[in-house]
Amino acid sequence: MTPAIKIEQIHKHFGTLHALKGIDLTIEQGEFFALLGPNGAGKSTLINLLAGLLRPSSGKLSVMGFDVVQQYRQARHALGVVPQELVFDPFFNVREMLRFQAGYFGRGTENDPWIDEVIEALGLADKATTNMRRLSGGMKRRALIAQALAHKPPVLVLDEPTAGVDVELRQILWEFIKRLNREGHTIILTTHYLEEAETLCSRVAMMKQGEIVVLDSTANLLNHFPGKNLRLKLGSALPQSLSAMLRNEENGEYMLALSEVTQVEYVLAELRSANVVVEDMQLIEADLEDVFVELVGRK
């Protein structure tokens, strides 16, 4: 089967900045894929290259087998993009924007039922005739997702879709995106919320400074990372001898990184000998964030 996305040796320079340093990535049809990485890693740049908003310095990208430069019409038909910024056109309302967006892709009134469906599914029905300018941030985000879907693209890319979105809306969006994936859409999202990648995505790429440093299935990453976290609430300060294991400290709670469970013994022994009282203690499975810190931080 043709891959949904194929990226080969992509380099992108902005003046002297080498923003992408030879990215190779293939995403199959039907995948739910996460692109992770700290700010400035190059996630948006990669997406903008796929969308044709930027041009590669070298390398090739294709969407559903269509080269994004040579066969840009077919490639763009196959791709829906939700941009990171909350952009909108202040002259029009939600339904007008969706009709325009479908029209740009050659779709006419026969597409209106689909637009109604998207409006409904994203909970925009009572805002359909509201001017874009008057929508709240969360509603603007939904409208952007609806716009990306207006021409029914098989591949949907969302650049930080839930940044700055409240918990309730985040749940709604997750459910909706999961549904799209079940219905056959290939989904690619970028996020800093590792939790988001962990619950939604089957495969992740972690980027750092313009390179993919880790590429694996979410399950593999979590399995092969043996670490656990120990959360401690202590009667007094953490003894010096344990500071090497300290991951972070928040409101008098210490989070220690353990490479294996048996280290708990050692921690308790150290606390006892320093006469520190343990008020509360919890052992936590590692999550993607730990994998991320471990793998990306170390390189």
Partner: peptide, 17 residues
């Protein structure tokens, strides 16, 4: 206006030549 608002991308993302 579209450039400053950023909404020019709505057109740039499409197959319009």
């Amino acid at each position: 206006q579209s450039k400053v608002m950023g909404n020019i991308i709505f057109v740039l993302l499409t197959p319009i030549s």
